[in-house]
Each structure stands twice: as C-alpha cells, then as structure tokens.
C-alpha cells in the first residue's frame, strides 16, 4: 500500500510535457487560433498582405512574422492597460497602441533588414489596418490577462505566418521555379500569372475551397 502511494507520488511529475501541455487553457487557445480560427483560410481576414506580400516564400514568411510580433505586442499591451482605458474611447486607444508597435516593427525592419523591407513595401505599415490585430485586442485582450492574450495573439500570428508561407511557396515555385531563392526547377517556364495579382486571387480562392471541402466545420465569413 505504502509502496503504491510512493510510486504514484513519484510518477505524478513524470507525465511528459506533451501530455500535460494540451490540458492548459493557453494551449487550447493557441491551437484553436492556429487551425480552427485560421485568420486567412477560415475567417477570410487580413487579405491585403496575404496577397500583396506572398509572391516569394521568404516575403510571405517575413510578413507573417512581422504581423506576429506586432499582434503579440499589441495584445499584451492592451491586456495590461485594460483596466485603465475607458470603454468609450477604447477603439481609438487600441488603434494608437497597434500603430505604435507597427511603427517599431517597421523601423526595425528598415534598419536591420533593408532589402526585405523594400520588398514588402507598404504592406508592413498596413499591418495597422489588419482586421485581426484589432479583432484580437477587442475580442480577447480586453477581457484577459496579458500572458493569456499574448498566447492567443501568438496562435493567430502563427496561423497567419503558416498560411502566408504556404501561399508564398506555391507562388514562388510556379512563378519563378525556385524556393526561398534557391532554384529548384532548371529550365522552368515561369507561370507569369502566379506573380501578378490575378494568380494570388485564384490561389487564395482555391485554398479556401480546399480547406472548406476537407473540414467543413468552423466559421467561414468575411469581415470588414
């Protein structure tokens, strides 16, 4: 009997991290935001950078990561200030917080990664009007602790980065025959349509259709 209790005591902390982690609230938020509420293919949000910055895989990934950093920082800030900001002026206040963080990201990119900043052009500053950044601030961060809000934002950001990188990979592969700048197909005839705007629209439309076809559940909708 005593032996059994001892074994139990000893084995309790031995549950591997991979089994303990999925039980926590933060983890559930994270997974839900990455897949079930994927901002690009599920919610049809943040379409401008999705199309404008994905003609190359590296651009898509960079745009996704820039958005991720701005979203996490803004959500944590909004959550930390949620008791101070009066409800009547919360939307302008959120916009200013988001604009502040996006400015920081933009200046950082311009200083340390100038070629990438030039390739992305105005799509980095346009993260300000990215619907889901404000959406997470309003729907989640205004009612939760900074830590949980940061995790929630991280999930959305990772889902967004994943979608953008996927789009960038296909567009670069078909449009240039290369992947992350490395030539994959030699003597490839570039599909010009994949580089021009029309290809982006067609490809996102197809992706949305495929995702909806294989997992019909979840919310699909267009926002403003």
């Amino acid at each position: 009997m005593a032996e059994a209790i001892q074994i139990q005591k000893a084995s309790a902390p031995a549950i591997p991290l991979t089994q303990r982690l999925p039980q926590t609230k933060g983890w559930k938020e994270l997974v839900r935001d990455i897949w079930d509420d994927n901002p690009t293919f599920r919610m049809i949000l943040a379409m401008c950078p999705t199309m404008g910055a994905t003609n190359m895989a590296i651009n898509g990934m960079a745009q996704g990561l820039a958005t991720l950093i701005a979203t996490v920082a803004s959500s944590a800030t909004v959550a930390a200030l949620r008791t101070i900001i009066p409800a009547e002026v919360r939307l302008p206040a959120y916009m200013i917080i988001i604009a502040f963080w996006v400015t920081i990201v933009d200046i950082f990119l311009r200083a340390y990664l100038p070629p990438l900043s030039a390739a992305l052009g105005p799509y980095v500053p346009l993260i300000i009007t990215n619907c889901f950044v404000l959406g997470r601030a309003e729907a989640f961060a205004s009612q939760n602790s900074p830590g949980l809000s940061a995790l929630d934002a991280l999930g959305v950001g990772l889902g967004f980065t994943m979608s953008l990188t996927l789009l960038g990979i296909v567009r670069e592969l078909l449009g240039f025959g290369s992947l992350f700048g490395i030539q994959i197909f030699s003597g490839w005839t570039p599909w010009v349509i994949m580089i021009i705007p029309a290809g982006a629209f067609l490809l996102v439309g197809l992706y949305v259709g495929i995702v909806k076809h294989f997992s019909p559940g979840g919310q699909i909708g267009g926002g403003a």
């Binding site: 029309a198 629209f201 067609l202 495929i210 076809h213 019909p216």
Partner: peptide, 23 residues
Amino acid sequence: IPEGLKGPGIALIIAGLMAMSFV
C-alpha cells in the same frame, strides 16, 4: 458551385479573373 467554393471561395476566384482582365 461546388459546396466548398460557395461564398468567399468563388468570390476570390472571380476577383482573380477580374484582375486578369485589368492586366
């Protein structure tokens, strides 16, 4: 329209065709 493409999916594809004509 195929079930999966109804709504936003087909709208994006139409936008693609419109973008092509604006080229």
